[in-house]
Amino acid sequence: MSKKTLMARGLFVAAYLLLAIWAYTTGKGYVVFINNYATGESVEVFVTLDKASPVRIRRGGFVPLMVKGKGTHQIMVRREGAADFEGAFVYPRSAEALSIAVAMIMPGQELVVVPVSAALEER
């Protein structure tokens, strides 16, 4: 086997492994719990994460949604009688899960995300 052949094969295997690793790291889904716990005037909401289709959350309910990879993600919240909210949040590298309360989302304000372990301690 010539040196060139050996190198080409080495590169091929390396590229193959890199592809697998890249797919795993960037494609892994992480959970975001989105709750619509009642705080008075709360109503049914539709939440859209990234490019997924909108998900309905009834009043007082919560849903686990998935986002692809950690890092920055888009969120859009639509509720009756209010303007749509569009924003972004950062999934912290250290977090295993994330919780977002719809009630805490105010137009024009910073989005509040709570790593789940912290959220659990609060209760």
């Binding site: 193959y16 592809l19 697998a20 890249w22 797919a23 795993y24 960037t26 494609g27 892994k28 889904g29 992480y30 998935m66 692809k68």
Partner: peptide
Amino acid sequence: DYNVMGIQGLLLATCI
């Protein structure tokens, strides 16, 4: 099972 989503999930499945 590893919860890899979208095209990356398909690529990972192919790689395996």
